[in-house]
């Protein structure tokens, strides 16, 4: 995480971890989430989804801080984050759903 101005207590702050969920077939490829993710977690996928758009994929899932900006910016309700408590066990893969998206 990049700080513009480093908080004085930055070494005491424990960064939260988030898990990104994407319903790829609901996406219309606007790229809002990719561009405005503060941790650059997302990128456009090479593949097309069922609608013919490039959905996002989490290329750096471990960097997600569960801020939820992607979730509230997404015009299609296709991406959201949940708190990921045990980052140690899972290696922070994003969860991709193909089925329920329309």
């Amino acid at each position: 995480m990049k700080f513009w101005r480093k908080p004085l207590d930055s070494d005491q702050i424990e960064l939260p971890h988030g898990r990104v969920h994407i319903i790829i077939n609901r996406c219309k490829g606007c790229g809002f989430c990719i561009k405005y993710c503060p941790c650059q977690v997302l990128e456009f996928a090479e593949e097309f989804n069922r609608k013919g758009y490039h959905p996002p994929i989490a290329v750096k899932p471990e960097a997600c801080v569960n801020c939820g900006l992607c979730e509230v910016m997404c015009p299609e309700f296709a991406i959201w984050v949940t708190e990921d408590g045990n980052r140690g066990q899972s290696d922070g893969d994003e969860e991709v759903t193909n089925e329920s998206g329309r």
Partner: peptide, 17 residues
């Protein structure tokens, strides 16, 4: 869902907010 709004239209974001 999906709604009728175009890709990169801001209306979905407004609805989300």
């Amino acid at each position: 869902i999906p709604h009728i709004w175009c890709s990169t239209c801001g209306l979905g974001t407004c609805l989300n907010s």
